[in-house]
Structure formats: structure tokens, C-alpha cells
Design a binder for these strands. Structure first.
Lengths: 197, 197
DNA sequence: CGAACAAAAATGAATATCTATTCATCTTAG
DNA sequence: CTAAGATGAATAGATATTCATTTTTGTTCG
């Protein structure tokens, strides 16, 4: 078996176990069992338990960034770009439920217990949103009153909270497509009724 | 010393310690030391470590709900109500940084590791937002195309993500007032430039 | 071809540490 | 003087990490 195979086998197992039990309640031996590997083997590929989580973030968010950037570069309209981003973010729930769950629940904690770790991949991810907003403003489609630095966080936060609904609720009320569209419309047109005086 | 004094002394200490180290890394002995109480004393007031966290949620979110409802009932305009809610949510960061941090970081995890615990107080909190949206729709000010069930989560998610920025960053770029206003405007008017064709 | 060997990889039992919880004992209040 | 409240040392269980040993892999040479 190639080295990289075992590395990714362990990563995949860790995603499953972290999703099921959360980082702190997950035992190394759980991950080892899931990966069909001895406990000690994990330490040949990772320095410690935190390292598994961090390395998982870097790799998987890296892939997501790559994918969504590919989708976005084929589109010009910032409104449609926003929709693509929202849809892609939420679709992760369908395609890789465990991964979505881990990123959702554990990512937020990570900065807390690993003070030294600066999550640059995460920054790169949300900066995709601010780039879209900037583009929209330059094209005159989006209002210049809006701070892209605030809007990028607001939009990411909104999408991520919708994710949380799926992760925690067993039978969510809305479909993913419906939600992506609704959230996009909300951010594009706002709550205000255009027909009102 | 009255019983309730010791209960709340321990709760306050737990808030500080959870904020500093996170729930899992916090030791009971840390909380005991912070509360100037023996380790065993904690078990006279709480069943176990989880119970401290849950009881803290219930109590503190309860107070927040009470406060913000008081503020809201004096106002009629749903737009202004939304602003009051946003401002109040973010102001917690200034007034009770540790508490904000614990609610921000640990609340999300709680449903995960305590499967049986349904956070009804949290539901009650975000339902304040959907009530505002409903009212706005009934008054014809807000568009009927928007699902209050989705919008409440989107708005809460956006605000909470802004909180996270403050909790993690040492020197945030924006003031709380500025942020509350920006986020509200974004949700009220959307990204789209009204001057564009 | 395959036997012999060395290096690399993998194993999992043992270690070392950590900490939530208990409870026999002591202190305080009424 | 008693009962409620508080104490903190001892217990019991858990588990991340190590490392002596075993297994696998790849290479050399008769």
C-alpha cells in the first residue's frame, strides 16, 4: 500500500469518527479501528491528535476552494456567482455529510484550543465571497455602501447556520436548492418589499 | 452565604474558565479555584460537568431573551426592531465578553455531545427574529417571498459570525455599532444597487 | 528463480498522566 | 448540640503516546 493511501485512509476514518463523537470524545483507538490500522500507525503519519484535525482541515478545505473557484471562473454575473457559491457550500452536506459536520462543528473550536494555529485556508475560503462583492460593486450592480469585509462574514455566517440546521436536525423542512435560492435572494434584494412606498 | 449566591458564584467562575480554556480543557478544579470553593462543593450544586454548562446556557440565555424582549416591546417599526436585536446581540461582546465567548463557541457543540439535550432556549431566542419578520410581512413592509424560517437562521448566523470575529480577533476592524448597522442594512436592502437599471 | 538479508513500515501492549467524581471527615449556623 | 453545608484527599477509570517487537517490502546475488 502506498504511503499516501494510508495517510488518506486515516484521514477519512478520522472524519467519520470526529463527525460521530466530536473531536474531544473521539479516541485515537476509534480512528485506528475505523481505518483498520494499529493505534501506533497513526503516529507514523501524524504528530498527535490535533495534527489529524488540522491536517484534515487544510486538505479538505483546500479541495473545496479549488472546486468552487473552478465553477466560479466560468461565470461573470456576480449575482449568479453568489448563487453558485451558496449552492456549492450547502451541497457539501449532501455529498459529504460527515465532512460537512466536522467542518461545521469542529472548525469553530479549533482556533480556540490551538491558539497558535491561524486558519489561513478558512480566510481564503471566505475571501471568495468578498471578491464576488467587490466585482459586483465595480460593475455598479452592488451598492457601494456595503462593506465587503462585513458582508463576506455575514453571508458565510448565514450559510453556515443553515448547514448547522441540517447537521443537527434529522428531517429539515427545506431542500438544499430551495435554501440556496432563498438565502441568495435575501442577500441580493433584502427583506424590504419593493412595492411598498 | 445564601445557597443561590454559591450557585451563581460557581456559574460565574465556570463562564470565566470555559471562556479561557473551552469546555473540554477546563478542569473542575479550575472552576473550583476560580470560585474559591472546594472541588466537592461543585457537586452539591450541579450533577456533573455537563450540567454546569447546560444550566449556564439556560440561565444566561434566559436573561438575554428577557432583556431584548423588553427593549423590543417599546418599538413598532420592524426595521428598527431588527436593528435593536442586532445591536443587543453584538453588545453582549462588550458587556460580557466571557459569556459571549462561551455561548459563541460551546453552544454549538453542546447539541453534539449531549444528544438528549434539546436547546429550547436557543430556539426561543431565534424565534424573536422570525416574529419580527412576520410582523413586517403582515404590515406589508417586508416581502412575502421571504421564508421567516430561513431568514431567522440567516440573520442569526450572520450576527453570530460577526461575534466570532470579535471573539477570535484581538483588534477587530469595525466597531459594534457600525457592524450592527451594516448587517441590518444588508438584510433590509440587500446587496443590489437600487440605482442600477 | 528464489534464498538471504536489510531497511522500512506496522503493530499493540505497556506506560504515564490526567481528572471527574466520591465520601469520610470537618466546619458553620441556627 | 444538631443538621446542613463544605472540604479535599483518595479512587477509579480513561486514553494519548511510546517503543520493543514483528511483519512486509525491495534488493542483491548464487
Amino acid at each position: 500500500m502506498r504511503v499516501s493511501d494510508k495517510h488518506s485512509k486515516i484521514t477519512q476514518a478520522a472524519v467519520k469518527v470526529f463527525a460521530r463523537k466530536g473531536f474531544f470524545n473521539a479516541r485515537i483507538s476509534d480512528i485506528a479501528k475505523e481505518a483498520k490500522v494499529a493505534d501506533g500507525t497513526i503516529y507514523l503519519y501524524f504528530n498527535n491528535k490535533y495534527d489529524i484535525l488540522i491536517s484534515l482541515f487544510e486538505d479538505e478545505i483546500g479541495k473545496i476552494i479549488h472546486q468552487v473557484k473552478l465553477l466560479l471562473e466560468r461565470e461573470d454575473d456576480p449575482c449568479k456567482k453568489l448563487h453558485i457559491f451558496a449552492r456549492h457550500h450547502l451541497l457539501l452536506l449532501e455529498e459529504k455529510k460527515d465532512l460537512a459536520e466536522v467542518l461545521q462543528m469542529e472548525l469553530r473550536q479549533s482556533n480556540k484550543f490551538m491558539k497558535e494555529y491561524r486558519n489561513t485556508k478558512f480566510i481564503e475560503y471566505i475571501d471568495i465571497i468578498s471578491a464576488i462583492i467587490h466585482q459586483g460593486q465595480d460593475m455598479g450592480i452592488f451598492s457601494k455602501n456595503i462593506s465587503p469585509g462585513i458582508a463576506k462574514r455575514a453571508i458565510f455566517g448565514a450559510l453556515d447556520e443553515m448547514s448547522r440546521l441540517w447537521v443537527l436536525a434529522d428531517a429539515p423542512h427545506y431542500t438544499i436548492e430551495e435554501t440556496a435560492t432563498q438565502v441568495c435572494n435575501l442577500f441580493l434584494h433584502g427583506l424590504k418589499n419593493p412595492l411598498a412606498h
